[in-house]
Computed example of a mutant assay.
Amino acid sequence: MRVGLFVTCLIDLMRPEIGFSAIKLIERAGFEVFVPPAQTCCGQPAYNSGDRRIARDLAEKTLREFEQYDYVVVPSGSCGGMIGTHYGDLFADDPELMGRFARLRPKVYELTDFLVRVAKIELTPGDFHGPVTYHDSCSGLRELGVKQQPRALLAQAGVTVTEMKDCEHCCGFGGTFALKFGDISTAIVDEKCANIRASGTQAVVLGDLGCMLNIEGRLRRTGDTTTRVLHIAQVLAGDA
């Protein structure tokens, strides 16, 4: 079966090692992975900012590049939510595009959801030793229903999860929200960082690089140089 990996802009530009970890996991589960070289943005920043024209252009581009594959896997709840949830809104006035999207939609999965529900991957305990705490990203949780999947995979890999207070609360990033409402964003991420520290763990694991960068950046700016901030793909693939 052919899997198209939607790498995401942030991973491609800032943490490509996460993409390689995702490929390793998908291949380990027995799938052939393809990374369309011309892929760019899913269109979420434009969509969230109200620029529907650019968002739709990017959505059409993504549709063209990925509709050939048996599955589309995204190591990001926010980009997966954009493709799987909001493309229907962008294509609503075009029956042809809507029909193509209707065929694509059931094939789109966030990485951990794919590994659990489709690949049914079986992991063995690796070299990573916990405990860790887990942050549920807003889009993955609320738009895609990603909650137990990453925890089940971590358990398979022998990683103990110590739940932090308010693990489902936002980290304050929200894409352009962090730019437009910096003071509010900072207050939100400060609360998240306090909960991470209070968990008593040395690492926070999550499935969205936007959240990773926001949390890690705030931890470092407030003097915490030891708490690790890791994408779940890195932990599961043995790359952490």
Score class of each variant (00 low, 15 high):
60 E>H: 02
29 A>E: 10
99 G>V: 14
62 T>A: 11
47 Y>S: 07
137 S>Y: 01
174 G>N: 11
148 Q>I: 04
144 L>N: 09
59 A>C: 09
122 E>F: 07
206 L>I: 03
136 D>M: 12
127 D>F: 11
26 I>R: 09
240 A>V: 03
202 Q>N: 15
26 I>H: 04
99 G>H: 10
162 T>G: 05
178 A>I: 06
95 P>V: 14
54 I>W: 02
123 L>Y: 02
191 E>N: 11
94 D>A: 10
203 A>D: 06
153 L>Y: 00
157 A>D: 03
124 T>Y: 06
111 L>T: 05
231 H>S: 12
180 K>A: 15
165 K>Y: 03
112 T>K: 02
118 V>M: 03
238 G>K: 05
114 F>N: 09
202 Q>E: 13
21 S>M: 06
88 G>Y: 00
143 E>V: 12
44 Q>C: 05
22 A>W: 03
195 N>A: 10
58 L>D: 08
126 G>K: 10
204 V>S: 01
36 P>Q: 07
209 L>F: 08
39 Q>M: 06
53 R>V: 08
109 Y>A: 08
208 D>R: 03
122 E>L: 11
110 E>N: 14
51 D>S: 15
188 I>E: 03
202 Q>G: 09
69 Y>V: 01
171 C>A: 09
10 L>G: 09
130 G>C: 04
125 P>Y: 01
31 F>K: 13
235 V>Q: 15
224 D>I: 09
161 V>S: 03
117 R>A: 13
109 Y>D: 11
126 G>A: 08
158 G>C: 02
119 A>N: 12
159 V>G: 14
234 Q>G: 12
109 Y>S: 06
24 K>S: 15
165 K>R: 13
53 R>I: 10
222 T>I: 13
